[in-house]
Amino acid sequence: MAAHTNGVNGAAHARALTPGIYAPIPTFFKPETEDLDLDAFAGHVVRLAKANVRPLVAGSMGEAVHLTHAERASLISTARRALDAAGLPDVPVIAGTGTGSTRETVELCHEAAAAGADFVIVIASGYFAGALSRDALRAYFVEVAEKSPLPVIIYNFPGASGGIDLDSDLITELAEQCPNLCGVKLTCGNVGKLTRICATVSEKSFAASHPRKNPKAPFLVLGGFADFIVPSTFVNGHGAIIGLANVAPHACAKLFELSVASVADPSRLPEAQRLQGVVARGDFTIAKTSIAGTKDLVERLYGYGGLPRKPLPPISAKAAQALWDHPHVRELVAVERELSGKVAQ
């Protein structure tokens, strides 16, 4: 795919999709009105990018289902402007565009491109999950990939799509068939599935036999949880898109760095395994509290975060304190502060 025109600054700029850690950025709301808090959002995007964590806007963690089209576009353009202003013009922006119908999903892909996104990530709608056969799901992703002006990442998240769980054969077949697909995020947590997909798409022969429409957007296999970054790297996975990176960006980025280093130098593996344990325990504990818990931790750590948009309930004060006091969280926070150069508190 040729360089697209950035909808914010009007400059043609093809940014690369590369292995690493990506964070689905929470959407922050003003407490009294539930309007977008774009200042907090912009600051958080830059904070993470400086820790080598790239942003995904309007995803599940970003409460995309609670956002209007205009709000999605505003978040994308805000992220792009913030990154450019911070001297980070090469950091790409991924935008969530999956919604109820194929037609609207394609529409959102075009709107994301106009707002300044570089890639989109698309989930299958779960509203009519029982009626969506394997052929219907294949047709959905094929049509979206063909009509999207931006490269498309498949988002496999059964918990948010009515239980739809794409298997490794279908994902691999889609990767082979659709040159505008540039990856998959596996929030099914299935390491075996990740291994099987990587066994095909991570081979050099795959890129030669099935070149991408955009040469800067190879097909990446990304985990959806932080607890198997080391194992996925050793089967030629490409990193992860993880909510935990909002809380501990330096720790998550360092874990991926150590994982890659360990493949070339096994003496680094014990260090990677130790950090993987810290991150995995923290991820397991924090994930139980979902978006509200993550936002509360971000508030405690960075001074912004706030509440989810209704009807999603906030975390209770008791549960929030218990999460903050949990030994797995305290251990993760200590490591994050150490890696970010702060004095542990």
Rank of each mutant, 00 (worst) to 15 (best):
G59T: 04
S168A: 15
V152Y: 07
R212A: 14
P218D: 05
P311A: 07
L269Y: 05
Y155G: 00
A16I: 05
P215T: 00
A251M: 04
V247K: 07
A245L: 09
A199L: 03
K216F: 08
T97H: 08
Q177H: 09
A317S: 14
E71W: 00
E336F: 10
G239P: 06
F29S: 06
A85P: 04
S74L: 04
R15H: 11
G306K: 01
L17Y: 12
G189Q: 06
I241V: 15
F157W: 13
A3V: 05
P313A: 08
P31C: 02
V298T: 09
V53Y: 13
A319W: 06
S161K: 04
E331M: 07
E63L: 04
E143H: 10
D135E: 15
P313Y: 09
D37S: 07
E146N: 12
R309L: 00
V335Q: 12
A319Q: 13
G239Y: 03
A11R: 11
P308W: 03
D35A: 15
R196H: 09
L186K: 03
T27Y: 05
L244W: 03
A58L: 03
P151M: 11
G130I: 02
A70P: 02
A124S: 14
G100M: 10
E104A: 08
D39S: 12
E143I: 00
D118A: 10
G116I: 00
P92I: 05
Y22E: 11
E331Q: 14
L166Y: 05
T102K: 10
C252K: 00
V230I: 12
V235K: 08
S209L: 15
R274Q: 13
I76P: 02
V152G: 08
T97R: 05
G159S: 12
A264N: 09
V260T: 13
F206K: 00
G87I: 06
R330Q: 15
T99I: 12
E257K: 11
A16N: 03
D39E: 15
F225V: 00
K254E: 15
P314Y: 07
T105V: 04
L186E: 15
G277K: 01
L255D: 11
L132M: 15
A320I: 01
D118E: 10
A16Y: 12
T233E: 09
A317D: 15
A317K: 15
L83M: 06
T294R: 08
V120R: 09
T78P: 01
P215M: 02
G10M: 07
F28W: 07
L339N: 11
I242G: 05
A207E: 14
R337S: 14
M1E: 14
A208Y: 14
